[in-house]
């Protein structure tokens, strides 16, 4: 396992290790306190063996030459986390009742709740940022050929994540229940309905009936805040597991510097 580099502190700031023979051989309360964190971690680790997994995830090696384009995936994940956190706060005030409720509760968030407008703005703009980042990340993996053997499956999971992100965007748009939301959704669902085979079923499912009615809004709400976020979180987990398992690609231009024999422990 590689050792962490020491922080580059100037010499006078470094605390010298205690000389042998200095203490009285017993741990004082200060040392006990220092030790407490380690004890807790050890206690958990003894019962879960999680430290191996953490080491596997964090101290795996990443090829040389990985650049800023490689941060787009985790940036997407942060945008998603932003949506989760701000979404939870919005859910505390939002009421999915079309007949008086939904629109009023959003207006209440905007006008009355402390920082409500700010959080709602973060959720609304965060969705745009996330969509942009998903596409940029997809572009990176596409142009770097990162979808090729052995990472095909990770690409497929990625496409599902892309679709789910767009589903989030579509279902979220209705929730404020203003004019723009209503008409955009009506048109959107009707377009779904013209599709072959499953089209009509899809639009019936979304509407919760054959046309816009009282259940439509709560259906969109359930999809938007329970089903799809759960799926996205689970799939991000699978996506990241595969990244850690297969390793991050080297940039396609990266040359092998020296051909050295592989040492088993280094792989």
């Amino acid at each position: 396992m590689p050792k962490l580099p020491a922080p580059p502190l100037p010499a006078p700031l470094k605390t010298p290790p205690p000389l042998p023979g200095q203490g009285n051989g017993e741990a004082g309360p200060l040392e006990d306190a220092k030790q407490a964190g380690i004890t807790v971690v050890d206690w958990v680790d003894e019962r879960t063996s999680l430290s191996g997994a953490a080491r596997w995830l964090m101290f795996r090696k990443v090829p040389k030459g990985t650049n800023w384009f490689y941060t787009l995936g985790s940036a997407t994940m942060f945008a998603f986390l932003n949506q989760v956190v701000t979404g939870v706060f919005l859910a505390m005030y939002y009421r999915p009742e079309p007949a008086g409720g939904a629109y009023e509760s959003v207006r209440y968030i905007t006008n009355e709740v402390f920082l409500g407008q700010f959080v709602r703005g973060m959720h609304k703009w965060g969705s745009s940022v996330m969509v942009v980042l998903v596409f940029l990340h997809m572009g990176r993996t596409f142009f770097f050929g990162a979808y090729k053997y052995p990472r095909e499956l990770n690409w497929v999971i990625g496409v599902v994540l892309l679709i789910l992100t767009m589903v989030m965007a579509f279902t979220g748009y209705l929730l404020p229940f203003d004019q723009r939301a209503f008409w955009a959704t009506t048109v959107g669902v009707n377009i779904n309905g013209t599709g072959p085979l499953i089209g009509p079923y899809l639009s019936d499912f979304l509407y919760g009936g054959t046309e816009f009615n009282a259940t439509t809004l709560s259906r969109f709400y359930a999809i938007h805040m329970l089903i799809v976020p759960g799926l996205i979180a689970a799939l991000i987990g699978a996506h990241l597991y595969l990244v850690a398992k297969l390793g991050t690609t080297a940039p396609p231009w990266q040359k092998l510097h020296k051909r050295h024999e592989l040492i088993e422990t280094e792989v």
Partner: peptide, 24 residues
């Protein structure tokens, strides 16, 4: 080839994590 490039690389923590944190 990939295994060699990986073995010559740097650990994910803290190098990649630092970049990701800046991006976040």
């Amino acid at each position: 080839d990939y295994a060699i490039m990986k073995s010559q690389g740097k650990p994910f923590f803290p190098y990649a994590v630092a970049k990701d944190a800046v991006m976040a």
